[in-house]
């Protein structure tokens, strides 16, 4: 479990999953153990996960590697658990204000590298920058209905596109002055 990884402990007890096929198929990750403080009860325990690399998208970052991510997510937990952390961001700024109210701040001590990747969340949303492109999401859902249409979709938007800039051109996504100057 990423949570245990972020805490720096080998496992955490979890109220759940007993009797499921998830436990049966991942016996390397889940065990059932006696609660040492209440001998009559047993708990599922989930092994810590510490990924070699954690990657997530944020809103902005400064040159020190301080990052602002959208509110409401568990990116901090991932950043704390992973050995190396790469963050893509919409915008590079001079300094991230520790009291930034646009999102939640993750201090640079948890971050290894920052990549400027405007529209990195597209076709989903980056709060304060752009909202989700529902037409594009629908196109993906439709394409995912069969192997052939899915292959065409991936070719059109991934394999046949040279790089991120070409992708933005293809999608007609234009950078605002703030994003260009970043």
């Amino acid at each position: 479990m990423v949570q245990a990884g972020s805490m720096g402990v080998p496992y955490v007890p979890v109220r759940g999953f007993s009797g499921t096929d998830i436990i049966e198929r991942r016996s390397d990750t889940f065990k059932i153990e006696r609660n040492p403080f209440e001998q009559h009860e047993t708990y599922v325990v989930a092994k810590a996960i510490n990924p070699d690399i954690g990657i997530f998208h944020g809103l902005k970052a400064d040159k020190f590697g301080n990052v602002v991510v959208r509110k409401g997510g568990d990116e901090l937990m991932l950043a704390q658990s992973a050995r190396k952390v790469i963050v893509t961001v919409e915008e590079i700024v001079d300094t991230v204000d520790p009291d930034d109210t646009d999102g939640w701040v993750i201090p640079s001590i948890h971050i290894t590298a920052v990549v400027h990747a405007p529209f990195g969340a597209y076709p989903t949303a980056a709060p304060g920058y752009y909202s989700a492109d529902n037409d594009q999401l629908q196109e993906y859902v439709d394409a995912a209905q069969s192997e052939e249409t899915f292959k065409n979709y991936i070719n059109k938007y991934v394999h046949n596109v040279l790089n991120h800039e070409e992708f933005l051109k293809l999608m007609n996504l234009t950078l605002t002055p703030e994003l260009i100057n970043a």
Partner: peptide
């Protein structure tokens, strides 16, 4: 086909 959640747990499991 796949048990994502189980109606019954093994004896002794802390379950509410």
């Amino acid at each position: 086909s796949y048990k994502s959640g189980a109606g019954t747990s093994p004896e002794g499991i802390a379950r509410r």
